[in-house]
């Protein structure tokens, strides 16, 4: 390779490495802020902020969904399979909301230890399959499909 071209190539490589290193340091430094949600264990351990909005993510516990007869209020527990926190929400739940589904809610803790959500989002997992496959998997591996 021509020496001039070689020098340009080396300059480009150094530039990319430099930018990548700088970005890497910045991302590591802001790692906590880039996390979208806290887990119920974090919340129980007191890692989540007090008196400030934050997000909590986990799986809706089977059989924990209770609806009010007179309003759109709903209560349910979410868990990360270690700890569970009760969520109170007043509003329309997304299509994918169901027991055993991963969800992310935004809100605050009240003094009863309940998480009062302003927003409930359903997290979709990476699995795509037709209903009959899902049904036969549920029979064979009930633990897997819950995750």
């Amino acid at each position: 390779m021509h020496p001039l071209r070689k020098r340009r190539l080396i300059l480009i490589i150094i530039m990319i490495i430099g930018v990548a290193t700088a970005t890497g340091f910045a991302l590591v430094a802001f790692n906590q802020n880039l996390m979208f949600y806290f887990s119920p264990s974090d919340v129980q351990a007191g890692k989540a902020p007090v008196n400030r909005l934050f997000r909590m993510g986990g799986i809706v516990v089977d059989g924990s969904v209770k609806r009010s007869d007179t309003s759109t209020e709903v209560w349910f527990d979410i868990t990360d399979n270690e700890k569970a926190v009760t969520v109170k929400y007043d509003g329309i739940l997304p299509d994918l909301f169901r027991e055993g589904q991963g969800i992310i809610s935004k809100g605050k803790l009240n003094n009863k230890g309940e998480f009062v959500a302003e927003e409930v989002l359903a997290k979709h997992d990476e699995n795509y399959m037709p209903p009959e496959v899902a049904a036969s998997m549920k029979k064979k591996l009930p633990e897997d499909i819950k995750e």
């Binding site: 329309i92 739940l93 299509d95 909301f97 989002l121 359903a122 979709h124």
Partner: peptide, 12 residues
């Protein structure tokens, strides 16, 4: 919007 329940979130 229908699946998550939001048009946009500021996730990574």
């Amino acid at each position: 919007k229908p699946m998550w329940g939001t048009w946009w979130v500021w996730d990574a």
